[in-house]
Design a protein around this nucleic acid. Structure first.
Length: 893
RNA sequence: GGACGAUUAGCUCAGUUGGUUAGAGCACUUCUCUUACAAAGAAGGGGUCACUGGUUCGAGUCCAGUAUCGUCCACCA
């Protein structure tokens, strides 16, 4: 196809779906179909599975871009490259969402029953999954759909059940009673990090349990005081020292209490009265104090957030109602000493925002401190710390990028407590434990009616923690337990585990990344991934988190519709650095759309110029012009830099360098030169080769347009599987010595000499750097008359000399490219000129003073690298001669 | 209370082991319909690199402290 047939404006809508279909049908997203030598290295990424709760947002889009860049780059570099897509059932999130929908229809999960409700959820999840899959494709993600996985499908379920069983056998999983975070709305436990803290104003009440009780206490939750069994004070507190160890009996609001005075370092003397009423059943730290001091544990509030039976008139009231009543009673009995408003951080459910209620409850836990043979007699915690610190199981340490997050990881892991893995919701992996009276079975008793299965499900992170290896099994029988160990018996597992890199947002470092390290090191005695690349969050233009309630959400699909996927991709990774948040707005995307279009037009121009078959000829080095050699040097440099940047995860830098080359070096300079220079066979080859190379280099970043242009070049192979550009391709051309030997350069020397002569005659001003000089030759008269026009030709020309001698205007460009200073002949406004020159002279003098000072410093000449010293000397000499010239010029003025 | 980050042009941000007189995009000013591209091109203005010290021949870059903003963790009875 020739350039004329191609539209001036690139239309992504006509191209993207078509191209994605071609890729998919080619089968090359699947590494099995890549034509590679036996021993090719593998490269693998698992897609952090998006929740099946709806649609993708910009954060997802960003994540897919980074991963697709890596995957496409590695695929082109000859790796056996696998990117596994999937979705996460996101237990609580999904169930909450469906319950909300049901509520609008006047139903609830309880009215439907477990089976029907799960059918509803599954239907919702399926719809959501389809949307997500479609959106992922729209982003251009080159993942292998034949290996798609779901955290709740049959295969993953088998992996989950197997690991649960193994952990139970190793006594790493236990069932126990502990105060857990209970969400009365979701009716489920929450892990510690699923609880959010929000500052709210609450009332703090100070009172005594009864009249002659010696110590007043302060609390924001008077209703829980019905279950108090102790009062804790700081052991250093002089006020209460005498009471420590004593026990008091009395009646509080109609309830008999036995209160022991205990000492605990965690009690702050300055807060309230410095004495804390200990309610072991409804507070985490109180629970710990109770364990330490062997206190009774009295449960006051039930799972519905209501006061339990046995608390007189309070029974059946909600916690809030009970609080009002208790306060009323305290006032009636004139026990209240103080009532004040304080800012208090309360715990709320990260899903629904309901205040969480700490409750003692029978739950399943993973013991993170118990040493186990499977981990070489280390605990889960120790192994996970080592994995990132120095490496485990003969693997190098896991690298977290940016590295500063390693510190966060250690801090979190060091403080890790036993992980509560059971959830009282229905949607999820049901706990594989059966009960019959006191008996417990880990064997499947589904067919035996005398056994009853645990009604709870597993924390969603239990299954997503196994994501890197559970996705590498493609059938149930590839998951086995052999000699008490989990084995994934598949070729995929052998080739692709551990995965090369985990790319995700820093916000789920603890939720997910840490959980993956926990589950993988235990289950298969290996690390899940070698590198972790953490990207920042995508924020709106004001630096706020995008959220539906704020109405500041940019929908990736809308943006794709408007500007094309490639533009959206560019806007997401250029200008953002690892671990740092990035802002995005429509204008930014529009800007990159313009760049994408530029690339389109570059290719139109090049293809029209080189025509067909031109690239077959051989390059004769002696025929190369200065510009040719210059651009070859640039592209070689570019290939090296971009490759290095990609290896170092410097996506943004790579993108910027590519943009710089494409726009400034290639389009604005070389193509402009090419317009003037004769069309040699060499020039056509170079134009063609450079176009090909930049298409390849750009492909991982903007796959659609590059593939489309590639197809217009009538290539046999898809760009998708082309070889990454290598320097060797350019080795036949050595461009290094172009500035001294080349005959074109000699010509420019002549020009310079001529200019120097003119300068000596004071016909030109000596300071202003000119952008070009045009030797018009026979066209002199014509061009002279059209000076304005020429100035604005896209040649970088703003000021110019027009001389009759010389041959081709293009020589001017050689001069510029070789860094020659060229000067302007002009009628000069002497006053203005004097002013300007004086100012410049002053600047230059400052500069030389600066240099002089540095050079006269003995320490500098002694200690600075010789190279730097020489460089500075050179600069000084040049500056000095410039000053002399300028002074002379000023005099003459 | 603990940890981490940010502070560079009007705005959004780069600046990789310390080394020219600190960069880009957008915005702004001026010019140009020009045979790849007006979704374009050319030229130009604009910065005490938050502040204070220190290390160094040399600091936007390294160290210490201060201020402001932000994020996370823990606690808040």
């Amino acid at each position: 196809m020739t350039a004329k047939e191609l539209p001036k404006i690139y239309d992504p809508k006509k191209v993207e779906d078509k191209i994605y279909k071609i890729w998919e049908e080619s089968g090359f997203f699947n590494p099995d179909n890549l034509d590679l030598p036996e021993n090719s290295p593998s490269y693998s990424i698992v897609l952090p599975p998006p929740n099946v709760t709806g649609t993708l947002h910009m954060g997802h889009a960003a994540m897919m871009v980074y991963q697709d860049i890596l995957i496409r780059y590695k695929r082109m570099s000859g790796f056996r490259t696998l990117w596994i897509p999937g979705t996460d059932h996101a237990a609580i999130a999904t169930q909450t969402k469906v319950e909300k929908i049901l509520k609008e229809k006047g139903a609830s999960r309880h009215s439907l029953g477990r089976e029907k409700f799960l059918a509803e959820v599954n239907k919702f999840a399926q719809d959501s999954h389809d949307t997500i899959k479609n959106q992922t494709k729209k982003m251009g993600s080159s993942c292998d759909w034949s290996r798609e996985a779901f955290t709740l499908d049959e295969i993953r379920n088998k992996a989950v059940n197997s690991v649960f069983k193994l952990m139970h056998e190793d006594e790493l999983i236990y069932r126990g009673e502990r105060v857990i975070n209970w969400c009365p709305r979701c009716h489920s436990t929450l892990a510690d990090d699923e609880v959010e803290h929000k500052n709210r104003e609450t009332q703090l009440f100070t009172f005594r349990y009864w009249k002659d009780f010696p110590i007043p206490i302060s609390t924001t939750r008077p209703e829980t005081k019905l279950g108090d069994t102790a009062v804790a004070v700081n052991p250093k507190d002089e006020r209460y020292k005498e009471f420590i160890g004593q026990e008091f009996l009395g009646n509080f609001c109609g309830i008999d209490l036995k209160i022991k005075i205990i000492a605990d370092r965690n009690v702050e003397m300055d807060f309230g009265t410095g004495a804390l009423g200990v309610t072991p059943a409804h507070s985490m730290i109180d629970w710990k104090m109770a364990k330490d001091n062997d206190l009774n544990i009295i449960k006051v509030i039930d799972e519905d957030g209501k006061i339990k039976e046995g608390f007189g008139e309070f029974a059946g009231l909600t916690a809030f109602e009970a609080r009002k009543l208790v306060v009323e009673k305290i006032k009636q009995n004139s026990l209240l000493e103080k009532e004040e408003n304080i800012q208090n951080a309360i715990s709320v459910c990260y899903r629904c925002g309901t205040s969480i209620e700490p409750l003692p409850s029978l739950q399943w836990f993973i013991d993170v401190n118990k040493k186990t043979e499977k981990l070489n007699n280390k605990s889960i915690k120790e192994t996970c710390l080592e994995a990132v610190e120095k490496g485990v199981f003969d693997r190098e340490k896991i690298n977290i990028i940016p590295q500063r997050f390693e510190k966060n990881y250690f801090q979190w892991m060091n403080n890790l407590e036993d992980w509560c893995i059971s959830r009282q919701i229905w949607y999820g992996h049901r706990i594989p434990v059966w009960y019959k009276g006191e008996e417990i079975s880990l064997e499947d008793k589904s067919n035996d009616a005398s056994w009853e299965r645990d009604s709870d499900t597993l924390d969603t992170w239990f299954s997503s923690g196994m994501w890197t290896f559970s996705t590498l099994a493609q059938s149930l029988d590839e998951i086995k337990i052999e000699n008490g160990k989990l084995v994934i018996d598949s070729n995929d597992f052998k080739s692709f585990h551990p995965t090369s890199v985990l790319e995700t947002g820093y916000d789920i470092l603890f939720f997910w990344v840490a959980r993956m390290i926990i589950m993988t090191t235990y289950a298969i005695n290996d690390i899940p991934f070698q590198d972790v690349y953490l990207h920042g969050l995508v924020l709106d233009e004001n630096g706020k988190k995008m959220s539906k309630s704020l109405g500041n959400v940019l929908d990736p699909l809308d943006m794709i519709e408007k500007f094309g996927t490639d533009a959206v991709r560019l806007s997401l990774f250029i200008g953002s650095t690892p671990g740092n948040d990035t802002r995005i707005n429509e204008e930014k995307i529009e800007n990159y759309r313009n760049f994408v279009n530029k690339l389109w037009n570059i290719s139109r121009f090049v293809t029209s110029k080189i025509g067909d078959g031109a690239t077959e000829a051989k390059i004769e080095e002696k025929n190369l012009t200065f510009a040719d050699k210059w651009i070859i040097d640039k592209i070689k440099n570019l290939i090296t830099e971009v490759t290095l940047d990609l290896e170092k995860y410097n996506f943004s830098l790579a993108g910027e360098k590519l943009q710089e080359f494409t726009k400034n070096d290639f389009a604005d300079w070389y193509l402009e030169v090419a317009k003037f220079e004769t069309n040699t066979a060499e020039k056509n080859i170079i134009l063609g080769k450079i176009l090909e190379d930049i298409l390849k280099l750009w492909h991982p970043f903007i796959p659609f347009i590059t593939e489309e242009i590639w197809s217009n070049l009538s290539k046999e192979k898809l760009l998708l599987i082309e070889n990454w550009p290598a320097l060797e391709n350019w080795n036949e051309i050595t461009a290094k010595d172009y500035d001294s030997k080349d005959n074109v350069f000699e010509k420019t020397q002549t020009i310079i000499t001529a200019i120097r002569n003119l300068r000596a005659e004071n016909k030109i001003e000596p300071t202003k750097k000119l952008k070009t000089i045009i030797y018009a030759g026979d066209d002199f008269e014509k061009i002279k008359n059209e000076e304005i026009l020429i100035k604005n030709l896209r040649t970088g020309v703003s000021e110019l000399i027009i001389e009759k001698s010389g041959e081709k205007p293009a020589e001017a460009l050689y001069a510029i490219a070789s860094g020659v200073e060229i000067y302007l002949i002009n009628e000069i406004d002497k006053d203005a000129e004097r002013k300007r020159i004086s100012a410049e002279l002053e600047n230059l003098k400052k500069y030389t003073a600066n240099l002089n000072q540095r050079l006269s410093n003995k320490e500098f000449t002694k200690k600075a690298p010789a190279q730097i010293v020489a460089q500075e000397k050179e600069r000084l000499a040049k500056a000095q001669s410039d000053i002399l010239e300028m002074e002379k010029y000023l005099e003459k003025l």
